[in-house]
Amino acid sequence: MIQLEQLSKFYGSDHDAICALNNVDLTVPKGSITGVIGVSGAGKSTLIRCVNMLERPSSGRVLVDGQDLTQLDAPALRKARHDIGMIFQHFNLLDSRTVYQNIAFPLELMGFDKNAMKERITPLLELTGLSDKKDRYPSALSGGQKQRVAIARALASRPKVLLCDEATSALDPQTTSSILELLREINQELGLTILLITHEMEVVKSICDSVALISGGELVETSKVGPFFTAPSTKLGREFLEEFLRIDPPKSLLDRLSSDGSDKPYPVIRIIFNDENVASPLISQLARSFELDISILQAKIEDIQGHTLGLMIAEFRGNAAHIEKALARLSDMQLSTEVLGYVD
């Protein structure tokens, strides 16, 4: 539905131009939810703004439903934009208009008459749960409600694609999940293709089908969400995953922990499990095979759209040689392990 081909964007003049996007290729299949994740400054905002030409790419093609937007003149582009809804981090509602009038805005632009507008808007108010707030002004709404208005407004023109520019970044976690749920619902019920950008793994985890990791203006990894979370193929992917899974060890442990293994013999190890090994009785096997006492200090299991991901911090006690062997076994098993430090 959306195809970005060799998309590049430079700011500034030739010799000291800053490259915001570098030869990006991305395909968003019809009906899917694709997330682009990256740290701030990675180019994700430029990327999504290139999809509806809010930002003109320096080179490359942007195909939305087969139409190359980079080739269109102004009137044709305006028409094409009616097929591309967009929501923003800061909602961008018109303060001078009520909820209803805000949703009517794109329809006014398209020249709808009053009755036709009402026919479109009423079901959208219901879908977004705003029926009782239709005559309120945005100033009287909460952040989550404002984003719902923005979603209804973006859907009013019945777009084929919805672009979400950090749509939940200004919202608290609870509101975020309700907005994500709404987006998921819209995706399934209306078959709407969604492209979103975010810096939060949580967003990708909860609604995306596919994910593209962007860094320094380049897509470094593109995959389905399941594999991305369980086995990211790039270093950056692993960093994102670790940040996502990060749990701070308890202070009592940190106080005992020493980075030097010479005076304290017992390692504290962080293990990340994925689908293949999360179910196996790994810890008790290790304990039995190597005569170790293993105590689990902290653990976390995440379910990512049917895939399981686990993280554990454990203390290995026993004979030094045995510990060595146990660690070797762990690395043989292709588990991601890391020695956090040593205790006595």
């Binding site: 509806n52 809010l54 582009l77 305006r78 028409k79 094409a80 934009r81 009616h82 591309i84 967009m86 923003f88 800061h90 961008n92 018109l94 303060d95 001078s96 208009r97 805005f105 794109p106 006014e108 632009l109 398209m110 407004r153 023109s157 672009l163």
Partner: peptide, 28 residues
């Protein structure tokens, strides 16, 4: 907020529509 103009552009508003439907009402 420049975001409002951008949102209107993303919805396919013409410059004239931006002036009459966004700029003037929002700056009223």
């Amino acid at each position: 907020s420049p975001g409002l103009i951008e949102a209107a552009q993303a919805m396919g508003a013409t410059p004239k529509q931006i002036v009459t439907k966004v700029l003037i009402p929002e700056a009223r």
